[in-house]
Design a protein around this nucleic acid. Structure first.
Lengths: 161, 161
DNA sequence: GATGAAACACTACCGGT
DNA sequence: ACCGGTAGTGTTTCATC
């Protein structure tokens, strides 16, 4: 129950769920670990409660879904307001991700989708209206999310429970 | 079956799965749409086959998971090799996402996690060894993935509750 | 914590409309 | 394209160790 400590079982669960978060059942994971399905299930619940698992997201090909314009808008926010502005940016329609950067001028990254330039202009205007200064805008060609393989074979360090 | 066309049912399915890709069942979605569960199920399968749904990802709080260093490494790749280099970068341990940008000097973004600076140095070296020139490196403070609400109320879709 | 059992819910697969 | 039935599988809950 220690705060940030994940044991071997937890890490394996994260590893397998990373591959296919919807299609991988507790029983499947249990089989690989030689555990019972209910044990894996309660572990998953605990990982959710502790906040280690924040959610299960859909990976959509927005291009195929009818939104060919995928862009990254780079903004500057005053540090005291950065957190609040980033949060408000999430509510804007067409915003698919927001990243806050610790330091520097380019400290808020906003990913957006749109069908046409009107969509993008509207989003830019909305960001600007919030008080986010837009410093750059780039077209994203492709994006890949990668599983972290270290969850599986990092077992040099462990031994705790 | 048209290529990029999603109808009202498809968009609703995407919308609900965006909220909780693992916990939302076909039957739940079917209920909201007044359809049978099997209809929703075959729709989901088709969306997967067509590639609109690319996968189901786990959203991990890497800080809680024991990886307090979350960074964004910005690289330059020669356009002819950009695609291949971006692909190879995905294989490096600690890389959680890769984004290819269409134009400009800052045309490959790599998100990474690490436990300490040694991890980060190793990743930087690996990227460099591939042939990616590192132009900037920033610490990510926080990241949020946002559902696209337009799937629900795009064009005069009916009532909801 | 981990486990097994029973009730319940979801999925895959079938044919039918 | 949508629906319903069924068999198999996953999940929830509870009692036990």
């Amino acid at each position: 129950m220690k705060d940030g400590e994940l044991d071997r079982v937890d890490r394996h669960i994260l590893y397998y769920l990373q591959q296919d978060a919807r299609g991988t059942s507790s029983s499947e994971i249990a089989e690989k670990l030689d555990l019972s399905a209910s044990t894996v299930r309660t572990r998953i619940n605990k990982l959710e409660e502790r906040g280690v698992i924040r959610g299960y997201h859909l990976d959509i090909d927005y291009d195929l879904a009818g939104y060919p314009l995928y862009t990254k808008i780079i903004c500057t926010a005053p540090i005291p307001e950065r957190d609040e502005l980033a949060n408000e940016a999430r509510q804007i329609r067409g915003v698919t991700a927001v990243r806050e950067i610790m330091t520097g001028e380019r400290n808020v990254y906003v990913n957006t989708i749109g069908r046409d330039h009107d969509d993008l202009n509207r989003i830019s205007e909305d960001l600007d209206a919030l008080g986010l200064e837009i410093v750059d805008e780039q077209i994203i060609r492709d994006e890949y999310v990668c599983p972290y393989h270290g969850f599986l074979d990092e077992d040099g360090i462990d031994g705790e429970e």
